[in-house]
Design a protein around this nucleic acid. Structure first.
Lengths: 341, 341
DNA sequence: ATTGACAGATAAAACGTTTCACCCTATGTT
DNA sequence: AACATAGGGTGAAACGTTTTATCTGTCAAT
């Protein structure tokens, strides 16, 4: 390749011929095995450079029964995940660590790749050494999971009670912390808004909020958690602000929701934080750039990716090890969307 | 796999043994080659199902000298691309078509995967049948390009004058169209804002704007295109609005910039579109959701992906064919950020 | 002189496919 | 009866690696 050889790439045999040794010798040098003289080593390396030789993946895969590929399975689809900025840093963490460990990333959307209830192609055909699932784990897949003959990891979600490795964030603690903070700022009536969407993170965050509310004796204010669309949330907030004991602060299940609600309220002449305080979750760019900047729960998304990479690599090395559930801590980022009463 | 076999996957030999035929027969059935009786075909298919057999990719790759993988090379990095919502639909288009054609997607960031000026691993080791580059093509890579012994495609950017397949959008026509529209709405002083960033799309859009300005005799208003950060742009706009012939409309090189500028202006009490009109470019979600909704140039991003998939597959089939430069048309989406004077 | 140890290198098998060339049998044609 | 043809199927080679077992010298110790 590197110096205008013919289009067809050099093989280990070409290198051996160039050096005048056996292919076993070349392989030994390249893999640092066996006893080869320094002189020969040097000659082999030079020949490789000259011929632009790199070991062919298919050959190595076949012989080693290993692919040096990790499959990333997006649920529900690549597009849905890509467009969610939240995942970009997680992917960055994954990419960084996996590349460092000399693995390729293979991508597939769960829905598009698994028509006819087959597993995705790269699992079926043994093209990967392990699979990381992002974006949630659909029920249909839970059954199939037993059939996946590969190291498997759930990123940013969890299958409670099931022996599956997961990297998760501590949404429970985080919301607890958020409520504590709001109470400390003098808020007495606080409501959380979340989406209809059922998923591990939403559930955990909800539980955390509830626990926080209880801890501070706020739970008798019924309906402390509201399931709503953003539109509905805005309407509800306006209502609740007119109650005898008006709502003074809300928590949203993520920054997307928080910022959107905030903007809509502002357009209706409601000031944040003067009229109402808001806390988000995730600490995505949107939260930093919002006006006013959003107080929110920060997650180290890149770290989720890195821990994920480490976990799957470790399981590939030692498939028998006990299941890991790694909990990534969160932190409260105080900006300007919460007012002290 | 599918019915609790041992962890080690069945091979073609296992299937042959189960059926009582040769592996050649099994292969023939699975690939629809050779003359095999219907009875035998049926038996083979059943055995495959029973044993959960799928042809192993490494074996097939080795024999066929084909990988059924397409490499996606992101510049500068996966993360930078992921977080840009603009690319999500392009990826969706790619994924849809490539998956349909039975290809896997392999991912790498250019910067992270090509340390030490090597090509990315998946190119070096022959793990892909073709490469699609997204996000631009850095100068360093232009040299290396000659060494890539593979079908190669640039998505959403172009190397002018070089024989490289590209799918591009017609930024020139689009900005021309934008200027036409603004003039028709009565605007006489229009300025375009773009970033310092050098890239094909920015250049094309700039040229288009300039051509539009000239066509309407607006070019004598010097400095019709401004290179600026968003902050600088906002300041400049405020100045230009105070000129003897004040600016009444601006065009931004993309929606991100347009919406950000719009929001900043609004915070300074400047009304869009009453005080100034704005047109963006790309038609991302942000543009639809902005308040007021942004008038912008729409690109069919998914189509870019689909055409890209088609193009690379076609080149894989017939590497000798002439270079393609496919231009995707754009359209003006009229919303509410432009006022008719 | 014999043995042992060791450095340096290699032949050959194996990984799981696909396909080419061939074989065998049955059927039809002259 | 001799021959062609077609249907059904198979053996073996090849794809590019890695690794195990083995081989050949050389040198030091006995």
């Amino acid at each position: 390749m590197s110096n205008g050889q013919t289009g067809i790439p050099a093989t280990i045999r070409d290198v051996a011929k160039e050096v005048g040794c056996s292919i076993a010798t070349v392989s030994s040098v390249l893999n640092g095995r066996g006893r080869i003289s320094d002189a020969t080593k040097e000659k082999v390396r030079e020949a490789c450079k000259k011929l632009g030789y790199f070991p062919n993946a298919a050959g190595r895969n076949l012989r080693n029964r290993t692919t040096e590929n990790i499959g990333i399975l997006f649920y529900p689809s690549c597009a849905r995940i890509f467009s969610n900025i939240f995942y970009s840093e997680m992917m960055a963490g994954l990419e960084e660590e996996l590349t460092k460990a000399n693995y390729n990333l293979l991508l597939a959307g769960y829905d598009i790749s698994t028509n006819s209830s087959d597993l995705p192609k790269f699992i079926r055909e043994g093209s990967v050494d392990g699979v990381i699932m992002l974006g949630g784990c659909p029920d249909e897949f839970k059954q199939q999971l037993a059939d996946v003959p590969l190291p498997f990891l759930l990123l940013d979600t969890n299958l409670e009670g099931m022996p599956v490795d997961s990297i998760i964030t501590d949404g429970f603690q985080a919301e607890l912390m958020a409520v504590d903070y709001l109470v400390k700022q003098g808020h007495r009536r606080i409501v959380m808004f979340r989406h209809r969407h059922e998923n591990y993170n939403e559930e955990e965050r909800g539980k955390g909020f509830l626990a926080g509310a209880k801890r501070h004796g706020l739970e008798n204010e019924a309906d402390v958690i509201r399931v709503a669309t953003n539109d509905e949330a805005v309407e509800k907030i306006k209502e609740l602000m007119k109650d005898e004991t008006p709502v003074t602060a809300i928590t949203a299940v993520n920054d997307d929701m928080a910022v959107d609600i905030m903007h809509r309220l502002q357009l209706d002449g409601i000031n944040v934080p003067d009229d109402i305080s808001i806390i988000g979750f995730d600490d995505i760019k949107l939260a930093r750039d919002a006006i006013p900047p959003l107080t929110t729960i920060a997650i180290d998304k890149k770290r989720i990716g890195k821990e994920g990479a480490e976990t799957i690599l470790s399981r590939i090395k030692d498939p028998g090890q006990p299941t890991r559930k790694i909990m990534i801590p969160t932190s409260l980022v105080v900006r300007e969307s919460v007012k002290s009463l």
